[in-house]
Design a binder for these strands. Structure first.
Lengths: 379, 379
DNA sequence: ACGATCGGTGAATCGCTTC
DNA sequence: TGAAGCGATTCACCGATCG
């Protein structure tokens, strides 16, 4: 029996002599509209997409006829309906272009407000995307509602989606949990607006971009759904918040932007960023990402001997360790997991945390022995 | 200041000798599906609609907690739809029926989750409704994500819409501001789930309805968008939270419900309500004590950078900050609290006061940085 | 009586690897 | 490609029970 199985193999490092030259679009801003610019990227090439599309409903360009929905109540809203149609066509087009360049297990985040996010979400579903979460960005300092006619609009909505129901996206659960002081990261993110020194200003002190997103928002998106070295696409790059955070966090980026002024501001901004070093960028990993230690290893290593007695935490169940790494408890025999399930009459059981050994006066889960093995292997 | 404005005149009181007999459907539950049941109501007759339609959850197999107990999922037949198209047709039908019975300046609230709310919102817009706000109900005690595969789904979304762009809906701005300690009511509502004594149970102690909404949520909706004496419609009445709160607050209600069991539970519940004791109903609102600031926030905010070095006050221990908000000190990694405990060999540790940064000549606890964040969030 | 502990539960689209 | 095995995974709140 091999004591350790090798983990998942890593992709070749970027400086590997066997790797092709980096793509010409990597860590660059492509000028143009996102549908045509994305044609320069190969299919299935990006790991993560962050999109902050416009929600200006007065788009020019193609106007499509209303569909066959017979809603006579809407007759007096013809113009408005036409606008929604145009917005929907625009949304379908860029989402399809993005979909092509996403890796099969890649993630897509789209942010918007109530003006556009419902249409975006419905179209995502219609195109076959699978929604993982919707996330609300709660602004600590939103603009008040001056006329007192509505609730203060204090949040924006972000949709996290993948290409299909079967996709297995990156989700750095353990890292996020540590980030959040050992509690699961929730779907509500409390973050301030982008103001102060972070807000890009031109020579006259005017803000360069009307809706610059805070780096804290992108920091959390990239920490959650990408790994160092991944490629992050932003099809509405603006002044480059996505690229700036990607560089800080050791990710590669691709941006698409139409306005030359934004491109220049973004390039200067990203140029000034210093990447974190590899050790600092390492993500906290839980058990899931660690090498598997078969129970028999504990016997091989001498941490347990055949005949050792294990008990459940409450002392109700007793089992004996056999030389082949199986347990025997009464008439039940099998793996630590199977016997743990059988003695409890349950369908499943994690034997590592269920079974305990006497460690002096108190009981300790056999998972502690596994930790001991792991620390020996690292030494 | 009076809590509720009386600027707009009330409808004639119910006991006026000049008024016709009250409509037979007033303060009653109509049995049936909402489209056909609503045919019994005249056009333009209700002031406020609260709708909690099926969410179309599309659940897979069983889900178990880490302790192997089974999650009691919402798998009722009424939540099952064959396709998005079927759900959309259902949504259009009930929204059109509701639209007919709404007064021109009436308000509609629809609540949902990411499974359905985007489709509902897009259809609302397609039908000519005008969205006033989207509101997020942030749950203080949501169900965790047991598998660690997504963000904890800690909110639901509510859309407030009116029949047209020109509508002038009731909005009790001043009352809401008083309730909210003289701050404008925001679009994020922090409310607990409906549990404990408020949750309706059957004779066996089982919950009567899988998705009973908290009265606090309806309390706020009715307080915001209706006046005493108004008529409030709930086309998916369930166990009658809307009717119960309407009666407490002196509003009239109409309910539509298909399931006899829910109707009977709702009738008994509403019967037991005493009107007018609105003050007795405690509102869960106002700012909560102090918002928790996860350590990772300091990185997002740029107050610390990945690779920063932290020390204990006595300088004996050293740790490095990683990009995901975890610390690394020798072989120990984890949250600021966990690593603080590990390096000291203790069971617990408050990382905020244990770890320090060099601030010029002297050391400062990282709690000082948290104070800085708090002051930014309040600004 | 009062605090500590334990058990239950909430609209949930909730595995991965090997054979 | 399907079946089986391994073994990872939870937060806030409420009410009952225990000491």
């Amino acid at each position: 029996m091999s004591v350790l199985r090798t983990g998942v193999s890593f992709a070749a490092p970027l400086d590997s002599p066997f790797q092709e030259a980096p793509a010409p679009w990597l860590n660059k801003i492509l000028k143009g509209d996102c549908v045509s610019a994305l044609e320069k990227l190969p299919s299935r090439s990006v790991d993560l997409v962050f999109a902050d599309p416009p929600y200006n409903l007065q788009l020019g360009g193609d106007l499509h006829r209303p569909d066959q929905s017979k809603v006579d109540a809407c007759d007096d809203h013809w113009d408005q309906f036409e606008s929604f149609e145009a917005y929907d066509a625009f949304t379908r087009a860029w989402l399809l272009a993005v979909r092509r360049v996403m890796k099969p297990d890649g993630s897509l985040y789209v942010i918007g407000s109530y003006h556009n996010i419902f249409r975006v979400g419905a179209i995502l579903q219609d195109l076959g995307f699978w929604i993982m979460n919707d996330i609300v960005w709660l602004k600590s300092n939103p603009m008040p509602n001056f006329r007192g006619k509505r609730f203060t609009n204090a949040h924006e909505t972000m949709i996290w989606a993948v290409k299909s129901k079967d996709a297995k996206p990156t989700f750095n659960y353990d890292a996020l949990k540590v980030f959040n002081e050992d509690l699961q990261m929730r779907s509500d993110w409390h973050l301030p607006l982008c103001t102060g020194a972070e807000r890009l200003k031109d020579g006259k002190g005017q803000k360069v971009h009307p809706t610059q997103k805070p780096e804290s928002l992108l920091y959390r998106v990239l920490t959650a759904s990408s790994k160092p070295g991944d490629i992050v696409l932003d099809p509405f790059f603006g002044t480059g918040t996505t690229g700036a955070v990607a560089k800080k966090l050791g990710r590669n980026f691709v941006g698409v932007e139409r306005e030359q002024a934004y491109i220049e501001a973004a390039e200067a901004r990203i140029e000034a960023i210093v990447s974190g070093d590899a050790e600092a960028l390492e993500m906290h990993q839980g058990k899931r990402a660690q090498k598997r230690i078969p129970f028999g290893t504990l016997l091989e290593a001498g941490l347990l001997t055949p005949g050792a007695k294990l008990t459940s935490a409450n002392g109700k169940h007793l089992a004996v360790v056999r030389a082949d790494g199986s347990l025997k408890s009464g008439a039940h025999t099998g793996s630590i997991h199977k016997v743990g399930a059988l003695v409890q009459g349950q369908e499943a059981c994690n034997g590592w945390t269920f079974w305990h050994i006497e460690d002096g006066a108190r009981k300790a889960p056999i998972d502690d022995l596994r930790k001991e093995i792991r620390s020996r292997l690292q030494a």
